[in-house]
Amino acid sequence: MASKAQRRPLGLSILIYGFVGLWFILAAFPFFWTLWGSFKVELDFFSIANWTNAITGERTKATYDSAFTGAAYHGAWVQEEFWRNVINTFMVCFFVVLTSLTIGTLGGYALSRSGYRYTFWLLITALIFRAMPPITLVAGYLLPFFEWNVWGILPTTIIVLVAINQPFTLWMLHSFFQNIPKELDESAKVDGCTQFQAFRHVIVPVMWPGVITTGLFSFLLAYNDFAVTAMLLSESNRTMVPAIAAFLGTTYTEGNVMFAVAAVVSATAPLFILVMFFQRQIVSGLTAGAVKG
């Protein structure tokens, strides 16, 4: 039961609900609007005559006899072969998450268990690397990759994304492993385990919550990257985001903007599902570094 002093005056309540409502509209409405509009023809979604056409679908009805049409999706997925980019994205994301978690777990564990001074410098170096925009490194990749003939293929991009991911992964797993009591693996070592055996049999079974949270952020980094994938992948190996950017170049002239709209909605859907299922992990991951200060 709230005390009298804590009870809100009506005016404040209205203000709070009004503000929350406004933010809700700002945050959610653009996504629903674009989802709704992706089932319309371009003249409705980008209506010159009347903006309500985007809701009622006047022109869509005139063209397809129905207020909704999947024409944009057909154009993007079948005609422009967007499914190839989708497959590429998921291959890149899968291998980036797998590799960066494997090597990041080992590294983060070692950093959390070694008390020597160099661990501090390694973490500071990682922080500096984390601060650098990835695009500044791309100029350094191009010449060697052309020289060795590995430019444009998925494995190269995967390795580069793993490396760019490492500083963040290390910081996150480092702070996570520090919360696992040292006594656990110390006692295993007393029982005769090597460090690796202690890690394998004692730490691995209890590390999954932290690893899953870190994995989510690795996934997001690989999924959302534009600068590196656009520069390092050839046209046939493009992932979704650079493919959408490439759509824009051609579609504004050909009048196929709706293909890009459909592709954008298709690329947002997995993220939507991800937030739905992993909301708690994402929130805890975002705050993990912060709350401990």
Binding site: L220, Y223, N224, F226, V241, I244, L274, V275, I282, V283
Partner: peptide, 10 residues
């Protein structure tokens, strides 16, 4: 979370 999670370009 949506505006933050979504790909910046998208």
């Amino acid at each position: 979370l949506l505006p933050m999670i979504v790909t910046p370009l998208i």
